[in-house]
Design a protein around this nucleic acid. Structure first.
Length: 485
RNA sequence: GGCCCCGUCGUCUAGCGGCCCAGGACUCUGGCUUCUCAAGCCAGCUACGAGGGUUCGAAUCCCUUCGGGGCUACCA
């Protein structure tokens, strides 16, 4: 019990890391940091049909982006290297051989068709489906026959009678009767290991003390424990399991591409902050106990305990994520917003070339800092300041630039051109006196046409500030252009 | 079907026998503020799945039931 804490995040990258994966990684990381233990990152790529290098690299990149720094794993190495299961194949093969030699496992020559037929029969007979143990004691005749047929055997673990009870840190004691845990395959016919073998071996060899993973693996735990037993691991050295509840989509189904986006890369592209994603995900299934919700990465490591993880599945709520993202952006220093906004300006095709453009951008950001929910909204707000070919949004034009607005724009043009000292106060005073007092208009009616003419949209940063940044010359050009249609 | 897990506002949750005719956050509704949009402020709506117990007392303990989910692979 006094073993140093070692937590691992061990995804099988068969696609982009998704929200559920990341929440697990976050909890792993937070728990390791909370306890002063190690955070181990291992790639479970034994299923070479589905795992690709591209996905592995994406997983590494995503974890880095989120700031979940690992102590051991890809790129950083560590005492249990390598951390890619595809590079540890000989280790699994050795253990499988030992299990075979000790009689814990046996060769099974049944082919997929036979297994399928057997399962069908069991279902029909209303018996728990599972391997029937046919090859547990194979006859010499059958053996030679199978071998002459060229069948490649799998290595199958012998599941003894009885039951397995283990303590789950989130759910308490869980018991599985072995009648419902059939003999399972450890090694495929082609010699490659399966998840159940590889995880168990690696968790033991990497001295993992806590296994936090998805609830979908709850029922595979007895099989893993069986492998520990075959490896002669002492029960007190088994890792502590904690099966996290699912993250569900909007319609109560497991989160998938169909209902709400799940890939973290998707959120990144849309201007969500890594700290916002982590904060939101932390709250999805865990709470610090008081009413605190705005939590920094640092606080997470201080407050996170497995005991406070909930046991019921959580629905992913984009609105709440957005609210948190907005809060986090508002809490950022302006310089930081500017820095983080740059890639979004670039991908929006707005070039900020030269010191002048950069300075202008730096002055524009404070105007929209508190109005944005994601970084991706920034380009649309400030585009009017940087575009050579200025164009008014057609819909805004139709709604706000009518015949009625012509006198307003004309008056605004006169007022603006009369300004001698280009200052915010002067702009505001000039426009208010010309339009509100001069034309006796309501502020909203007066400023909307001007806003559309100058910024090209009905929603913009504050008008007077926008005009100030745009400059007298360009403002007048646009006011003129809007009158001529 | 079998085995296993889960069940508090629309959503995420607090609550671990009396502090709860249930608190916070997001959403939603109304209002204030206001040059648009936000932000901010105020107010409001809405929940212990159901039925039995145990107890002086239950959201909290037990049972049943209903509902949701997972697993049932030579996937993880």
């Amino acid at each position: 019990m006094s073993r140093p804490v070692r937590v691992r995040f061990a995804p099988s990258p068969t696609g982009d890391l998704h929200v559920g994966n990341i929440r697990t990684a976050l909890y792993d990381w937070a728990y390791a940091r909370h306890t002063g233990g190690k955070f181990v990152f291992r790639i479970e790529d034994t299923d070479r049909e589905r795992v690709t290098d591209e996905y592995i690299n994406a997983a590494i990149d995503t974890l880095k982006w989120l700031g979940l720094q690992w102590d051991e794993g890809p790129e950083v190495g560590g005492p249990s290297a390598p951390y890619l299961q595809s590079q540890r194949l000989d280790i699994y093969a050795d253990w499988a051989a030992k299990f075979l030699a000790a009689g814990d496992a046996y060769h099974c020559y049944c082919n997929p068709e036979e297994l399928e037929a057997s399962r069908e029969a069991q279902k029909k007979a209303n018996i728990a489906p599972g391997y029937d143990g046919k090859c547990r004691a194979i006859s010499a005749d059958d053996l030679t026959r199978y071998q002459s047929e060229g069948r490649k055997p799998v290595v199958r673990m012998r599941m003894p009678d009885g039951s397995t009870t283990f303590y789950d840190a989130i759910r308490g004691d869980v018991t599985f009767d072995h009648n419902f845990v059939p003999d399972f395959v450890l090694v495929r016919g082609d010699g490659s290991p399966l998840y159940t073998l590889a995880v168990a071996v690696d968790d033991v060899m990497m001295q993992i003390t806590h296994v936090l993973r998805g609830e979908d693996l709850l029922s595979s735990t007895p099989r893993q424990i069986r492998v520990y037993q075959a490896m002669a691991v002492k029960p007190e050295d088994y890792p502590i399991f904690a099966h996290l509840p699912f993250v569900m989509g909007q319609d109560n189904a497991k989160l998938s591409k169909r209902n709400g986006e799940v890939s973290i890369a998707w959120y990144r592209e849309r201007g969500f902050l890594p700290e916002a994603i982590c904060n939101y995900l932390a709250l999805l299934g865990w709470s610090p106990g008081d009413d605190k919700e705005n939590i920094s990465m640092q606080e997470m490591t201080e407050l996170f305990t497995i005991e406070r993880v909930g046991k019921n599945p959580a629905r992913f709520d984009m609105k709440k994520l957005e609210a948190i993202n907005g809060d986090k952006i508002r809490a950022l220093p302006v310089e930081e917003v500017i820095k983080r906004a740059l890639p979004f300006m670039e991908s929006a095709g707005i070039a900020l070339t030269g010191e002048q453009a950069e300075a202008l951008f730096a002055r524009a950001i404070p105007l929209i800092h508190e109005r944005i929910v994601t970084l991706a909204e920034i380009p649309d707000y400030v585009r009017f300041l940087f575009t050579e070919k200025f164009a008014i949004d057609p819909e805004a034009k139709e709604k706000a630039l009518t015949a009625d607005s012509l006198p307003i724009l004309a008056a605004a043009e006169v007022a603006i051109s009369a300004i001698t000292e280009w200052k915010l106060e002067a702009i505001e005073t000039a426009l208010r006196s010309a339009l509100i007092e001069g034309l006796a208009l309501k502020p909203k009616n007066a400023f909307t046409p001007v806003r559309v003419a100058v910024t090209g949209a009905r929603v913009s940063p504050p008008l007077f500030e926008s005009i100030e940044l745009l400059g007298k010359e360009r403002t007048l050009e646009r006011l003129k252009a809007a009158q001529t249609g």
